[in-house]
Design a protein around this nucleic acid. Structure first.
Length: 829
DNA sequence: AGTCAGCGCGCG
DNA sequence: AAAGCGCGCGCTGACT
């Protein structure tokens, strides 16, 4: 196959200026660079500079493209990439490169068939006759400068692979513990070390499943004489000499293991939970993942990419999903290298933290103590009322099925004209979820108007008609006279029950342990602002798998008492929710120094009620709960940079309120007239992020915003809004985290039987023994309202902070306590 | 049977 | 010219 300037294999030839442009470079090159399309001068020199900097000789590089047509303004979609592949294959056959560097998703797809550049970048993807390393496209780096450092690291990695450079850290000698004698020696060693970096390999998804076992345990130890020793201990692996006695072996070395002063791990909460489950009370005094995140919240945090980028070591991955069928030798080597590289990352991150004392303080005072507390929270779990759950499951399914039955009356016979078919040509099943069937039925068959569409398809077709809630709401208001009007109302009601069935009640049931508790994972590295995220352990994220999934998101339990009322405290205990009142807006007032806002809080008023009374023109005493909720959307939206247009849509979608664009513009203007200080604060944040490329919360948590240097105005504006929001969201959630730590400490000190069950951004949930409520409630409230911010961080919070407490047998029906009740609980009952 | 992207919606 | 911020996850349909 030769270059064909008349090529019509795909539609791109219709719109391109150059059809089928061949690559260039020496015909015997052993390195090939493949990008999205024949590169423009700018990108070409950007790439060449990077490669030369990394030490690659351009004389051995051939440059070409995934699709051979020049298509500046449009992306080539997968069908077009496929159509163009023969040309690329022909080129590869001729040049015969050993190494190929792929830029962007299109090149990745053309070379490997994978898509999803963020998942595949920066690693060797071995193909038949050559190796591929992929990274993001140069265009995406200029658009999002935040990607630049990762992009450079990928290119450096590629070049070091091509050149076969010696690794900067040599692979250590690993002692495999295979005999009783060696086990004894290991125990002796453990008694003589002050630092260990440790890691385990496990059988399954969760330590709570009945067949859970630890396959191997490894460590990198530093002896009191300063010697590094790397060892790996086989446990449950089939080839392990300790296969049948692995728990005894663990028990044998456990006491010496836990006594080691410095315990380092990467995402150690995971390992610590497993070890504690098997009675080895291991801790984490330095977590390299958490350090990496605190130092740069945007970076990749996996051990492998960190080791690649910072230590320059080659990959050492094995298939961790199938450890029991992997030779023991490989498992032990893998396990040991994890600990060895973790130890070296520790040395780097420790130094970086020492160089940034504010971050070091956050790390020592907040991050690591919180990590320890969360181990307890996750292992303890949250109690779910089984009787209520059984009932809720029944009702949810009954309601949904009853609605389905109603809806079926409006469904014609299968195979009616136009009824959608599967790829194989069979008629699809009736499906009232957002499916092809529903779209056909609603818009074609029943004839409701299409109000909104999703993104256009890859082949250029129009996007599918949207059936999202806002669209249904619009139909509900505008189609009253439609003969099938009731279908709309039924579908909206159905969506709620369907979500309950699929996402909540059945999940809760599947995840409940034998003590009716649900365990989730709280990530301290899940968000760029420092909030926690909640859900599954990364290791347990298996797509398609329906069984044995641990972790539900405890931060998105619907407020509907029907669902929230399922969670609670077991008999003898009380559920307590402690909520920071309007904390983000208090922080906004604190940071912006806006006089009106400061006044509202200093007078002890409620800002949402104040806004509601102001917008509606009624006295604050007449503001209803609903009005206040609406005002909340106004406050948060405008404070964080929402425009009038977005305000119109959220007001309708969330509250069914109709504003014209003009009215919204007026409200927005009036809002900033009222809170003038917000203007200058917004501008200040913009200046700071423009100048430094980052912003900080009052206690020093950093948000890096390299996108501020983008050439795209939209991207810049986004970074500016993030610069406004981040310090607020970050500070508010850190206040919550610090509260948890201090409350736990106080509980321990006073022997209070109380357990923190989790954090929901600006709220803490507890389960407290009934006998200790009188003592615990004031501790919770006092701690949250009087955080040692001045002592710990030199921050003077001249702003009243209020914590509202609710108690009940269940989360969903917890009742708010008055201040009086909080402080006199013991005597009031 | 597993993987992936897009959509949509739960929470703060 | 216009632009709220921060998350996790279930379902569908296309693909391998």
């Amino acid at each position: 196959m030769m270059r064909d300037s008349e090529c019509t294999l795909c539609k791109l030839h219709q719109t391109t200026e150059v059809v089928c442009q061949w690559g260039f470079g020496p015909k015997n090159a052993d390195v090939m660079v493949v990008s999205k399309m024949p590169n423009s001068g700018n990108y070409q020199s950007l790439i060449e500079d990077e490669l030369v900097n990394a030490g690659l000789d351009m004389g051995r590089v051939y440059f070409t493209a995934a699709t051979k047509c020049r298509t500046f303004d449009q992306d080539a979609k997968n069908p077009q990439i496929k159509a163009c592949r023969p040309y690329l294959e022909e080129e590869i056959q001729r040049v015969k490169p050993r190494w190929i560097l792929a830029f962007g998703n299109e090149a990745l797809y053309a070379l490997t068939g994978h898509s999803g550049i963020t998942n595949y970048r920066g690693q060797v993807l071995a193909q038949q006759e050559y190796n591929v390393v992929a990274t993001v496209a140069p265009g995406s780096v200029t658009r999002n400068p935040g990607q630049k450092s990762g992009w450079q690291a990928d290119i450096q990695f590629f070049v070091s692979q091509v050149l076969g450079r010696p690794d900067s850290i040599s692979i250590p000698k690993i002692s495999a513990i295979r005999t009783r004698q060696q086990l004894k020696t290991l125990r002796k060693l453990l008694r003589n070390v002050h630092t260990i970096s440790y890691d385990i390999e496990t059988t399954g998804d969760t330590e709570l499943s009945s067949d859970a076992a630890i396959v191997s345990l490894a460590g990198t130890c530093i002896t009191n004489e300063g010697k590094e020793v790397v060892w790996a201990l086989p446990l449950y692996h089939p080839e392990s000499p300790f296969r049948n006695s692995w728990r005894k072996v663990l028990k044998y070395i456990g006491p010496d293991l836990v006594k080691i002063k410095k315990q380092i791990a990467h995402n150690g909460k995971y390992d610590a939970k497993w070890l504690r489950h098997f009675d080895v009370n291991m801790g984490v005094s330095f977590d390299t993942l958490l350090a990496a995140h605190l130092l740069d919240e945007n970076r990749v945090k996996g051990l492998k990419p960190l080791a690649r980028i910072l230590l320059g070591v080659p990959g050492w991955a094995i298939k961790t999903k199938d450890l029991l069928n992997t030779p023991l030798r490989s498992v032990l080597r893998y396990n040991a290298l994890d600990t060895y590289y973790t130890y070296h990352l520790y040395k780097i991150f420790r130094q970086q933290l020492i160089d940034q004392p504010r971050l070091l303080r956050l790390y020592k005072l907040m991050i690591m103590p919180a990590n320890e507390d969360l181990i307890g929270t996750e292992m303890h779990g949250i109690w779910i009322d089984r009787e209520r759950l059984d009932n809720a499951i029944k009702i949810s399914f009954d309601m949904r099925d009853a609605i389905d039955e109603e809806l079926m009356h409006h469904v014609p016979e299968a195979g009616t004209m136009g009824w959608p078919v599967t790829a194989k040509g069979r008629p699809v099943e009736v499906n009232f979820n957002a499916s092809n069937f529903l779209r056909w039925w609603l818009f074609d068959y029943l004839g409701f108007p299409v109000l909104e569409r999703g993104k256009d398809k890859e082949n250029g077709d129009l996007g599918s008609p949207s059936v999202r809630e806002a669209v249904m709401l619009e139909l509900k208001q505008s189609q009253v006279d439609h003969p099938n009007y009731e279908v709309i109302k039924l579908l909206m009601e159905r969506a709620k029950w369907q979500k309950y069935c699929s996402t909540y009640v059945t999940r809760y049931d599947a995840l409940r342990d034998e003590d009716d508790r649900i365990h989730t994972t709280f990530k301290l590295f899940g968000t760029v602002t420092g909030r926690l995220s909640s859900g599954k352990e990364d290791a347990e994220k298996v797509t398609g798998g329906k069984t044995n999934l641990r972790g539900v998101n405890l931060q998105q339990v619907p407020r509907d008492p029907f669902i929230r009322g399922l969670f609670g405290a077991p008999p003898g205990f009380t559920f307590v929710e402690a909520d920071f009142s309007q904390v983000e807006l208090r922080v906004v007032a604190f940071l912006s120094r806006d006089k009106t806002m400061l006044g509202i809080y200093q007078r002890g008023e409620d800002i949402h009620a104040a806004t509601a009374s102001w917008v509606l023109g009624i006295p604050q005493s007449k503001v209803s709960k609903e009005d206040r909720k609406k005002a909340k959307a106004v406050n948060f939206g405008f404070v964080y940079g929402m425009g009038a247009k977005k305000f119109v849509s959220t007001a309708f979608e969330k509250y069914e309120l109709v504003f014209t664009l003009g009215e919204a513009t007026d409200i927005r203007r009036a809002f900033f007239d009222r809170f003038r200080g917000l203007y200058s604060w917004h501008n200040r944040q913009r200046r700071i992020v423009q100048q430094y490329g980052r912003v900080q919360s009052p206690i020093g948590r950093v948000r890096h915003l390299p996108d501020i240097y983008s050439s795209d105005q939209g991207v810049v504006a986004e970074a500016e809004r993030q610069a406004i929001n981040s310090p607020v969201q970050s500070f508010a959630s850190d206040m919550n985290l610090i509260s948890m730590i201090l409350i736990n400490r106080e509980f321990v000190r006073l022997g209070i039987k109380g357990q923190c069950l989790g954090l929901v951004h600006d709220a803490l949930n507890f389960e407290i023994h009934n006998d200790h409520l009188g003592l615990a409630l004031p501790i919770i409230k006092d701690t949250m309202e009087n955080l040692p911010l001045r002592k710990w961080f030199g921050v003077d919070m001249d702003m009243p902070i209020i914590s509202d407490l609710k108690i009940g047998t269940h989360w969903g029906d917890a009742k708010e306590l008055t201040v009086e009740e909080v402080y006199n609980f013991g005597t009031l009952i």
